[in-house]
Design a binder for these strands. Structure first.
Length: 295
DNA sequence: CTGGGGAAGGGGCCC
DNA sequence: CGGGCCCCTTCCCCA
């Protein structure tokens, strides 16, 4: 009995020591992050000052793209943002977007800054979401974030350029598909969609996997394939604590687990022939083949 | 049920 | 402004 008490004491001491060590580690990490944040802010402020000084020296160079160009009397004076400048006889390309970004940096992002391209619901479930550089800029007053966007009056989709809106309207709301495949007669809305489609008939696969040498017709399919070699699984399903390589599989997994979490009667996909219910559209589709086979 | 490839839709953006 | 390319996303199918 005495031995058991001693053991308890020993375990308690060890646990306390381990907890103390973990807390210390956490505190140190937090302190390091705080220092990092302070350093970053200081750097941002310094860069801002530099940008302000530069813009005082050369205001015309920082004209936003959308602003109409003023005719210049000096033929060599270039006003567009994409002009190259000669510095010490060397051609130096301007990098206006970065300059704009730095000039637009706020001291702290707004509290309710939203994450563009992020599925918030998914994020809440624990799905990992990768943010591009543009995403980070988006919430902090980037030029694109503030630019007036033209919106589609049919579906509300926003576009930066009028011609992109026109393209969207013609493809998605006109009901017409202007391009017809000469091989199978399939109609497609865009020329480049047709080009891609024709590859399927001609067996063209211009994209080669550097790991296994396998060819693919589309770069995005190659990219997903390469995850097999790299082991990259960018999607995390919070429901079953699993990483997956396909975004669609994540969706299917979520559909299944959420349907299972509810009662079986709440399954959303119902067979019109026999009334049986399924968790996912994919499962229902597989089931429907049984009826088709019986026919 | 899972993993993987094929195919298409559609927005961004360079030229 | 439009063509075309790039890329991401989504869906389907199959082993």
């Amino acid at each position: 009995m005495l031995g058991e008490q001693r053991l308890r004491l020993l375990v308690r001491e060890r646990l306390a020591a381990a907890a103390e060590e973990i807390f210390g580690l956490v505190e140190r990490t937090v302190a390091e992050y705080r220092e990092e944040v302070v350093r970053s802010r200081r750097e941002i402020l310094q860069l801002r000052e530099q940008v302000e000084r530069l813009s005082e020296l050369r205001p015309p160079v920082l004209l936003p793209k959308a602003e109409p160009l003023q005719p210049s009397e000096d033929p060599d004076h270039r006003t567009t943002v994409e002009t190259k400048e000669e510095v010490d006889g060397v051609q130096v390309k301007q990098e206006p977007p970065d300059l704009f970004f730095l000039a637009d940096v706020q001291e702290s992002p707004p509290e309710d800054a939203t994450l563009p391209h992020c599925d918030l619901e998914a994020a809440a479930r624990g799905v990992t979401v990768t943010l591009s550089e543009e995403d980070w800029r988006g919430g902090e007053g980037s030029s694109s974030g503030r630019k007036n966007k033209t919106a589609c009056r049919f579906c509300g989709a926003a576009f930066k350029r009028d011609c992109d809106l026109l393209r969207h309207t013609a493809e998605s709301h006109s009901g017409r598909k202007a391009f017809k495949c000469p091989e199978c007669g399939k109609e497609l809305a865009r020329r480049d969609s047709l080009v891609l489609h024709l590859r399927t008939h001609r067996g063209e696969k211009p994209h080669r996997c550097p790991f296994c040498g396998r060819f693919f017709s589309q770069t995005s399919n190659l990219r997903v394939h390469m995850r097999k070699h790299t082991g990259e699984k960018p999607y995390y399903c919070g429901c079953c604590q699993k990483m997956v390589a396909h975004s669609y599989h994540l969706k299917i997994c979520l559909q299944r687990t959420s349907a299972q979490a509810r009662t079986a009667g709440a399954r959303a996909f119902r067979c019109p022939r026999c009334g049986k219910k399924f968790c996912t559209a994919a499962d229902l589709k597989v089931h429907k083949r049984i009826h088709e086979a019986r026919k």
